[in-house]
């Protein structure tokens, strides 16, 4: 199948997954009642629509960020968490819940986004040399530090209810988000995605190593800024609005490479689509699992994703060996 047809297929699947996410749930809401003036219509507008839009955006952001970071670090194990931006945004969110700032309008989002922004500035300061090593180490330090502080806040939570609220938020979910959440997060995500989509040619050049890329006129210092800003804004905003949803950024670029080949620029847009499809589908499935409360999306993703990824790796290795 050629790449145009594949991309058309992915677009179609994205649309299908989006529609599924609009309809699926304990109550199925069919298109004929989307505009209805009753409970179904209300559920659709107030719950399903923001949830589906967020699923689409967050999935796309995570898939794209994973593809860009794997390309930049030339390492297929990289994912959006390597920069420590997700952990920092999560710390900000947890801090907001602990202090009660999350009760203010946009309090949680603002805290998480500020924390993500701080981590971006720190990363840029740490990795000023433009080298990959400083970048990875900086990300690791930030990630560990933010993780430890998050654990600390949980440990000093005033009561079990607060601790459980924090943990629940951390696990990542798209439940009960409002259109207002969507509108707050969207500009950050859009800017981040635009920055990340512009990196294709530079990532391709890095196929030849850092010196090869430099000799082709690529400014690696500038590339690093674009990536830190792009991932920081886009992933920071997604964590701020949905908690940490893992695995999408790691797994999607691999699936896309199997279809599109390994050239970094060729997998950017498809990885965004793939991330959206995976997230929307998983988020629809968690709603359909019977039980009193929903499985958290972040958990479902890991539980479903890990064995699938393993299977894929085994097949892939058999294929190339």
């Amino acid at each position: 199948m050629n790449k145009r047809a594949l991309t058309a297929l992915l677009l179609l699947l994205t649309l299908a997954a989006f529609l599924l996410s609009l309809m699926a749930g304990k109550v199925w809401i069919w298109p004929n009642s989307w505009a209805a003036d009753n409970a179904d219509g209300w559920i659709f507008l107030e719950l399903r629509l923001p949830r589906a839009v967020l699923g689409l955006c967050i999935g796309a952001v995570l898939g794209l960020s994973g593809a860009v970071l794997q390309g930049y670090l030339r390492n297929p194990l990289a994912d959006p968490t390597v920069l420590g931006v997700s952990a920092s945004a999560a710390l900000g969110g947890v801090g907001a819940i602990y202090t009660g700032l999350n009760l203010l309008p946009f309090g949680l989002f603002t805290c998480a986004m500020l924390s993500a922004g701080l981590s971006i500035l720190l990363l840029l300061a740490i990795s000023r040399s433009g080298g990959v090593m400083g970048f990875i180490l900086g990300g690791m330090v930030l990630s560990t530090l933010a993780g430890a502080l998050t654990a600390f806040i949980i440990s000093i939570a005033p009561n079990p209810f607060a601790a459980s609220e924090i943990i629940n938020w951390l696990m990542g979910a798209l439940t009960d988000r409002l259109m207002a959440d969507v509108w707050t997060a969207l500009p950050f995500m859009a800017l981040g995605v635009a920055l990340l989509l512009s990196t294709g040619r530079a990532l391709d050049a890095l196929t030849l190593g850092e010196n090869g890329a430099k000799s082709l006129g690529i400014n690696l210092f500038r590339l690093q800024w674009i990536i830190v800003l792009g991932v920081g804004l886009a992933v920071g905003a997604s964590v701020a609005v949905s908690g940490v949803v893992g695995f999408v950024g790691l797994i999607v670029p691999h699936l896309i490479r199997a279809l599109y080949g390994e050239q970094p620029s060729q997998i950017l847009l498809p990885s965004a689509l793939g991330g959206a499809i995976l997230t929307l589908t998983a988020d629809s499935l968690v709603r359909l699992v019977p039980g009193p409360s929903e499985v958290r999306l972040g958990i479902a993703m890991a539980v479903l994703g890990a064995p699938f990824f393993l299977l894929l790796l085994l097949r892939y290795r058999k294929g190339t060996a």
């Binding site: 030849l208 010196n211 000799s215 390994e262």
Partner: peptide, 14 residues
């Protein structure tokens, strides 16, 4: 100016 860097580095199976 074209440069053929040391080490014949290539990173992806393109």
């Amino acid at each position: 100016i074209g440069l053929l860097p040391q080490g014949a580095e290539t990173h992806w199976a393109i």
